[in-house]
Amino acid sequence: MSRVSIVALLSSVFALPAFAMPADLDMDGDGLASLAELQTKYPEASKDLFTEIDEDADGFINDDEFVAAVDAELLPGTTSDQ
């Protein structure tokens, strides 16, 4: 495998977390955010908003649902000062 391929592969692997939910939202480290975890970072988040974001209705927000909520401007995007 060429050096360029290896660098491209490693870059894509390390770039993935930038599109996932922030670590301070997933407080228990299970890869999902509960309503309580969401309200810790976004105190204004209501149960109705949580239900709207939780597309698969499993009671948790996963990475895809979080990204979709940010894209739909249901939640503010993450920055280093949040």
Rank of each mutant, 00 (worst) to 15 (best):
S2E: 13
S2H: 11
V4M: 15
V4A: 14
V7E: 02
A8L: 14
L9C: 15
L10N: 06
L10P: 03
L10I: 10
S11K: 04
V13K: 12
V13M: 06
F14G: 00
F14L: 00
L16F: 13
L16R: 07
P17H: 06
P17L: 09
A23L: 13
L25P: 03
D26W: 10
D26V: 14
D28W: 03
D28G: 14
D28P: 04
D28A: 08
G29L: 14
G29Q: 12
G31D: 01
G31I: 12
L32G: 00
A33K: 08
S34Q: 03
L35Q: 06
A36F: 06
E37F: 02
E37Y: 04
L38I: 05
Q39V: 10
P43L: 15
K47Y: 04
D48G: 05
D48N: 04
L49M: 10
L49V: 10
L49H: 08
L49N: 01
F50E: 02
T51S: 14
E52Y: 09
D54L: 02
E55M: 11
D56W: 07
D56P: 01
A57I: 02
A57K: 06
G59C: 08
F60G: 08
I61V: 09
I61Q: 12
I61W: 07
N62S: 04
E65R: 11
E65S: 12
E65N: 04
F66V: 15
F66Y: 11
F66G: 09
D71R: 07
D71S: 08
A72W: 05
A72P: 00
L74Q: 15
L74M: 09
L74D: 15
L75Q: 08
T78V: 14
T79Y: 02
S80G: 07
D81P: 01
D81E: 11
Q82F: 07
